[in-house]
Computed example of a mutant assay.
Amino acid sequence: MTTYHERPAVPAGRYSDDHAADYDRWFGKPGITAATVDTLALLAGEGRVLELGVGTGRIALPLARRGFEVHGVEASQAMAARLRAKPGGEGVRITLGDFAEVPVEGVFSLILVVGGTLFELPSHEDLQRCLTAAAEHLEPEGVLVLDAHVPEALAVAAASGVPEVVSESDDHLILCHRRIDPSTATYHSHYLVHEADRTHHLRVRFHYASPGELDLMAERAGLRLRTRLGSWAGGPFTRGSAYHVSVYERR
């Protein structure tokens, strides 16, 4: 018999703890991951790499396999444990803590916060705090790279009522519908996860900012936009883009 499990909306950090064991199986996207790693490897140069919200190592481990010295910050002990248990996981230096504080020592040629992870922070103040702290840990020629949904595109998709197919395989199907609240600059991602023996509903809360708002925060942090792409595959960012990959450098 199929069973149903529903929980109230939770911050993304707690969601990571609760579902660390399923995260890779549910949300692993090999094609996107490969394109992301290729782009980041070109930007990293020969210096150290720091991933904020390193999770289970989807990006950190492939970068480490390419010879980079990779550090990561992760709030979820469960996610960090999954990373450490993977082949090569011992080679990624993990700091447990709030990634908005960037609680590490030294400087890096590449700092990244990807997979929409930046919007896990609960407020604009926290977004600003994160960008400011990250800027302080960049080498003079280093770059900060982030990706995120474009809020206007999220609103259009939400209004359509058509759910996104996040992941599907022989043993599961994940659909997502997002509900936007412009008054609080938040959106809730409603995930319907159907597996052979269970179907459950996850609601995760995120706090968003537009690309322009992120650029202003970056300026306050002493950074400037170097380039913005419409995808990890390298397509241009246009008025119709639903997603952006933004690269910031020191001013």
Rank of each mutant, 00 (worst) to 15 (best):
Phe206Val: 06
Ser183Phe: 15
Phe68Met: 13
Ser76Val: 03
Arg82Asn: 00
Pro11Asp: 06
Leu61Val: 07
Phe68Ile: 13
Thr95Trp: 04
Ala64Val: 09
Ser210Pro: 10
Ala81Trp: 01
Ala85Cys: 10
Arg48Trp: 00
Gly142Val: 00
Arg226Asn: 05
Glu6Tyr: 12
Thr117Pro: 10
Thr186Arg: 14
Leu52His: 04
Tyr23Cys: 08
Thr227Arg: 08
Ala9Leu: 06
Val54Tyr: 02
Gly106Thr: 02
Gly53Ser: 03
Trp26Val: 04
Ala148Glu: 07
Ala148Val: 13
Arg14Lys: 05
Val165Lys: 07
Lys86Cys: 12
Glu90Met: 15
Gly235Ser: 10
Asp17Glu: 12
Ala209Trp: 03
His172Ile: 15
His19Phe: 08
Arg14Pro: 02
Gly72Glu: 08
Leu40Tyr: 00
Cys130Tyr: 05
Ile174Thr: 13
Arg65His: 13
Val92Glu: 02
Ser246His: 01
Pro163Cys: 04
Thr238Tyr: 02
Gly89Ile: 09
Gly142His: 00
Val37Gly: 01
Glu101Pro: 08
Glu69Leu: 05
Gln77Ser: 05
Ala21Pro: 09
Pro140Tyr: 01
Gly45Cys: 01
Arg251Trp: 09
Arg224Trp: 08
Glu105Lys: 14
Ser231Gln: 03
Ser246Glu: 00
Val104Pro: 01
Ser167Phe: 15
Asp171Gln: 15
Phe108Ile: 01
Gly45Arg: 01
Ala12Thr: 09
